[in-house]
Design a protein around this nucleic acid. Structure first.
Lengths: 127, 127
DNA sequence: ATAACTGTTCAAGAGTTCATGAGGTATTGA
DNA sequence: TCAATACCTCATGAACTCTTGAACAGTTAT
């Protein structure tokens, strides 16, 4: 279980426009990750601004970094993200049925073509 | 679908110790909610501090208020909470399988007795 | 009316976050 | 070794967040 303190750190880290963009970009790029320079070019951030936000995300355990010669490669940390989701679902919302119902309801207006995770949450709760 | 902007507002609202406590307390008390004074007594906050944080949560759409004679009754807003969860699952994490797996893995160490929502997410994904 | 009760709003001050730009460190190639 | 590349760190100032206490506003009881 994710500690309350680290959940708070993760929420703080996510509560920022630039960092939410970073997180989504890195998630799409999977375990291979991206070099800091490529990220900066993709999002149009200055080097120092980028470094600041990447450090915040890494500090919160949401991403990780490794060096590849000159480049710093950043990638999303699935366990960090899974931890905060799990915290919100269980420790914070206590699997509250009304929250789950609204979670599903709000996902239906998005119009996904493939099978929908949030729908499956509710389907499995109904069984 | 929850707008990106309101998701950011909700994350900012949740990224605070006092407000996370408020949210959990109000969720436990369901639609009937609690009077502000009772909340303050339960959490040991001053009146103005409490009012400040309650206003932030209400502004973010995570709670709602109504007046009952002298008292202000606050209650959790399930659709607001469901919206931010849905946003994180779908729009942010894009139903990323690795995140889901880690979400489930980190929930298993918590030791819940009843059937576990996070487990059910994964069970339904496997089918 | 007046007083008591319940909450909100406001202003001041401390602390935090963030963008910017200058300067620094590590790595590679000439 | 020198220059170029890729990135980080640090100092600064602007803007925001949060706490506190005092003043204010609505509601009820005497």
């Amino acid at each position: 279980m994710m500690e309350r303190r680290s959940a708070l750190a993760a929420l703080s880290a996510m509560a920022n426009d630039a960092r939410l963009d970073l997180l989504r970009l890195l998630l799409r790029h999977g375990p291979d990750g991206m070099a800091a320079g490529d990220i900066g070019r993709a999002l149009g951030h200055s080097a120092s601004r980028l470094s600041f936000h990447l450090a915040a995300l890494e500090q919160a355990g949401l991403i990780q970094s490794r060096r590849d010669s000159r480049n710093m490669i950043y990638s999303a940390n699935p366990s960090g993200l899974g931890g905060i989701l799990s915290f919100l679902l269980k420790d914070c919302c206590l699997d509250h049925p009304d929250v789950m119902a609204c979670c599903r309801a709000s996902s239906q207006s998005a119009g996904h073509s493939e099978t929908d995770t949030v729908d499956l949450i509710m389907a499995s709760r109904a069984s």
